[in-house]
Measured scan of single mutants.
Amino acid sequence: NQASVVANQLIPINVALTLVMMRSEVVTPVGIPAEDIPRLVSMQVNRAVPLGTTLMPDMVKGYA
């Protein structure tokens, strides 16, 4: 099963993503693939993302 990107903490809106904010985990439904974590660094989410939430492509500005 493919690992997805999961919030490692509350990720506020309009804050640049850092490695420490994200972890990889096998979850259902599948979200952004874990291998895209380096690409996500410095991008921003378009809504607050609670701890443990799977990041979906539509949550990250400029990802999709």
Score class of each variant (00 low, 15 high):
N1R: 10
N1L: 15
N1D: 11
N1S: 14
N1H: 15
Q2Y: 13
A3R: 14
A3S: 11
A3E: 13
A3M: 15
S4Y: 03
S4C: 05
S4K: 01
S4L: 01
S4T: 04
V6C: 04
V6Q: 03
A7T: 08
N8H: 09
N8P: 02
N8Y: 03
Q9T: 13
L10H: 14
I11Q: 01
I11V: 09
I11Y: 01
P12V: 04
P12N: 13
P12H: 09
I13A: 11
I13N: 12
N14F: 06
N14L: 05
N14V: 03
N14Q: 08
N14D: 13
N14C: 05
N14M: 07
V15R: 11
V15L: 06
V15N: 10
A16C: 07
A16Y: 12
L17Q: 00
L17V: 04
L17H: 00
T18D: 07
T18H: 05
T18G: 07
T18V: 05
L19R: 15
L19Y: 14
L19D: 07
L19W: 10
L19P: 14
V20K: 12
M21R: 02
M21C: 04
M21A: 05
M22W: 03
M22P: 00
M22Q: 00
M22F: 09
R23F: 04
R23Q: 05
R23K: 11
S24F: 06
S24C: 07
S24L: 05
S24I: 10
S24Q: 12
S24T: 15
E25C: 05
E25M: 12
E25T: 07
E25D: 13
V26N: 13
V26W: 12
V26Y: 12
V26R: 07
V26D: 08
V26A: 09
V26T: 11
V27E: 02
V27W: 02
T28C: 08
T28E: 11
T28P: 01
T28N: 13
T28S: 13
P29N: 04
P29G: 03
P29W: 03
V30T: 14
V30H: 14
G31Q: 03
G31D: 01
I32H: 01
I32R: 01
I32L: 05
P33F: 10
P33A: 07
P33H: 09
P33D: 06
P33W: 07
A34N: 05
E35A: 13
D36V: 09
D36C: 06
D36S: 10
D36Q: 14
D36E: 14
D36A: 15
I37E: 01
I37Y: 02
I37C: 04
I37N: 00
I37L: 11
I37T: 09
I37D: 00
I37Q: 04
P38C: 07
P38S: 13
R39S: 10
L40S: 00
L40M: 07
L40F: 01
L40R: 00
L40H: 00
L40C: 04
L40K: 00
V41T: 06
V41D: 02
M43R: 08
Q44H: 14
Q44V: 15
Q44M: 12
Q44I: 10
V45W: 03
V45E: 01
V45Y: 03
N46G: 09
N46A: 15
R47I: 10
R47S: 10
R47L: 08
R47H: 11
R47M: 15
A48N: 10
A48Q: 15
A48C: 07
A48S: 15
V49P: 02
P50M: 08
P50S: 10
P50Y: 08
P50A: 15
L51R: 13
L51S: 13
L51A: 15
L51W: 12
L51E: 14
L51I: 13
G52H: 08
G52V: 03
G52N: 14
T53Q: 14
T53C: 07
T53M: 15
T53H: 14
T53E: 09
T54D: 01
T54H: 02
T54G: 02
T54R: 03
L55P: 01
M56L: 09
M56A: 07
M56S: 06
M56V: 08
M56G: 04
M56P: 02
P57L: 04
P57K: 09
P57D: 06
P57A: 15
M59Y: 11
V60F: 05
V60R: 00
K61V: 11
K61G: 08
K61F: 14
G62Q: 09
G62A: 11
G62R: 07
G62W: 07
Y63V: 04
Y63D: 03
A64P: 15
A64G: 11
A64T: 14
